[in-house]
Design a protein around this nucleic acid. Structure first.
Lengths: 341, 341
DNA sequence: AAAAATTACGCAAACGTTTGCGCTACTTTC
DNA sequence: GAAAGTAGCGCAAACGTTTGCGTAATTTTT
């Protein structure tokens, strides 16, 4: 016996008034008398009336729903980001519709389509690694669906985004090593095309330049971020004539793999070789030889900021003929130094 | 200039046919001639027609949306569960509406309400630790919104759920230690009221019994799962007359804290004292002294299974007068032994 | 006391889609 | 060649809500 949800009609019938009156009464409209308002509320309570949101969404062409597209929900970075997004959306009475691209462009496209059809009010996305064509985002413009990107930003003009300035963190990281006396500093970077890789490298270069040292390109190797790729990279770095005494790893996972390799080669961590990296994973505290320092990228803050920007966009009066402005927020990354114990 | 999405009406007008014909044509209905079908599709493509899902949801009283309520998205266990849920839902053309309770009953209630108003087709939930009243779930019955619980199951009759049999894993864990020769085995359990704690203890007791040993209640201490709580627990365990040579920790996090304490006391891990625990966190491979073994609880599989059950429920013909049956799936946990290296 | 203003409500359209039923025109059957 | 069947399409209601406009009743103004 599936229970039929009470509607506004039902209330109207019971009170012998029109549905419009009921609707207005429930919205506390000024043109409805106090007496009828009270009676309507009374009956609404008795019947346990709940507005049918699907009807409202349909009628209002607004769903109070934010679409969120992330590459991988199980990754620590993104799971704390989605946590932030949900918190912020919820605080403003929005809900979150979720999709994960698994770093596949095709999947990402399909999810965008789904979200468009679901009539989400706006989108928050961190793009897939393998997305090279951004037409599916471009297409959203003419439907006036605002998009805010975060962390992984597409190379498109006129977009809103919040990102983390990794370059500055990278600079801090390398400077930290230089100040500790290291002069030959290797880097295990990610794939070349990744923006994340470039930023890391730029920070590295800045630090070298700042300390008036000579840049040796041979010290920069790249890993495909798998364990094997990292092992390869380590092999390259450790078989050079001028062996690095410190290594900047693409992220904590890479660093941990690199550490394992180094230990396999009987190297003493923090003596023969020192590591710094990016991400500042919570669990790495427990790890045998955590990187001496790690660049925090503030996923919670990024997610929160992105959501706030999107909500702002949604509350802005679009019909006003103000020229569009684009929010580009850069959160500064920060080198977190492990308390040496 | 916000672009107006083309509708079925628009197509009808252009072809001088009725909307119903267009609708049927797009659904490949048998009563529409091939010629008109082709023409309709043609125009639909030209206009880039996309059905307005909100209208369909409203009309069909079905949203193809699954509500998911989890305690904490940033926890590894739940983030891999939500990843599984999203994958499975997506595969069946459902989308996921997300909410996190932060282990607060009030928040959980509010989210249930929101999801009901959004007319989600069904709900997947892992209940908050602090939820003691389940009326908000009970209330969903009369709206015929099916709910599948997973991992954290409420104490309610007639529910669907998938859970992990931790007791058996616990039994395996303790048996493992007994077989290794340990005879005094401590346990750092969670708060007493938690079902998770009880199950762990039951497994412990079973193992003890199976090996015809005497149960010493003093060996079971509980932690509030904070670092301090775990340190306290360790203090108790290590200052007994009969010191345990092995300890079963509530989960990997607790184990790692416990290891830190032990090392602080100059104890040699795996010599003076051995740890086993629960969760089998991916990162603990990298950790200095990971627990010798850990009970895997298969969050991905649990999420997947829960989603499949829910989808089954949704596709079942409810009007048929078949008596309801309740799916209670128990996934066996499994002790994963770290390859000693 | 008539005119004007205000209060309190109802009518009906609109949002976009699906679907039961009915209708026409053509084809088949005996 | 009339009856029966079928193919192909249109009408209109329905889903639940909001909202512009109209209007009757009441109050205020002059």
């Amino acid at each position: 016996m599936t229970f039929k949800q009470p509607t506004i009609k039902e209330i109207a019938k019971r009170l012998n008034i029109s549905v419009s009156t009921v609707s207005r009464a429930l919205h506390d409209h000024s043109s409805i008398g106090l007496r009828t308002k009270m009676r309507v509320r009374q009956v609404a309570n008795e019947l346990n009336y709940e507005p049918n949101q699907t009807a409202i969404f349909f009628q209002q062409r607004k769903t109070f729903t934010l679409g969120v597209i992330l590459p991988e929900l199980s990754e620590a970075f993104f799971s704390t980001a989605i946590s932030a997004i949900e918190d912020t959306a919820n605080k403003h009475n929005y809900t979150v519709l979720l999709g994960q691209s698994h770093d596949q462009e095709e999947r990402e496209k399909q999810i965008v389509e789904t979200m468009k059809n679901h009539r989400v009010d706006g989108l928050i996305v961190s793009i897939s690694k393998n997305t090279i064509n951004f037409d599916h985002f471009e297409a959203l413009r003419k439907y006036a669906i605002p998009v805010v990107f975060f962390d992984r930003i597409p190379n498109m003009p006129d977009i809103h985004y919040v990102a983390c300035n990794i370059q500055s963190g990278s600079l801090q990281a390398v400077s930290y090593l230089l100040n500790k006396g290291h002069r030959i500093i290797g880097m295990i970077n990610g794939p070349d095309k990744m923006m994340a890789s470039m930023q890391r490298l730029e920070g590295y270069l800045k630090a070298i330049k700042k300390h008036r040292l000579k840049y040796d390109p041979i010290l920069i190797v790249s890993s495909d971020l798998t364990k094997e790729g990292t092992y390869d990279a380590m092999r390259q770095l450790t078989t050079m004539r001028r062996k690095p005494t410190a290594i900047v790893a693409f992220n904590d996972y890479v660093a941990l793999d690199a550490v394992q390799y180094a230990r396999g080669q009987q190297m003493k961590i923090n003596e023969d070789i020192t590591f710094v990296s990016y991400a500042n994973l919570p669990l790495s505290h427990y790890t045998a030889f955590p990187p001496a320092a790690s660049v925090e990228q503030f996923p919670y803050e990024q997610g929160q900021k992105a959501t706030e920007i999107l909500l702002d966009l949604l509350n802005k009066n679009k019909d006003e003929n103000i020229p569009p402005s684009y929010n580009n927020i850069i959160i500064e990354s920060k080198l977190v130094i492990r308390n040496s114990q």
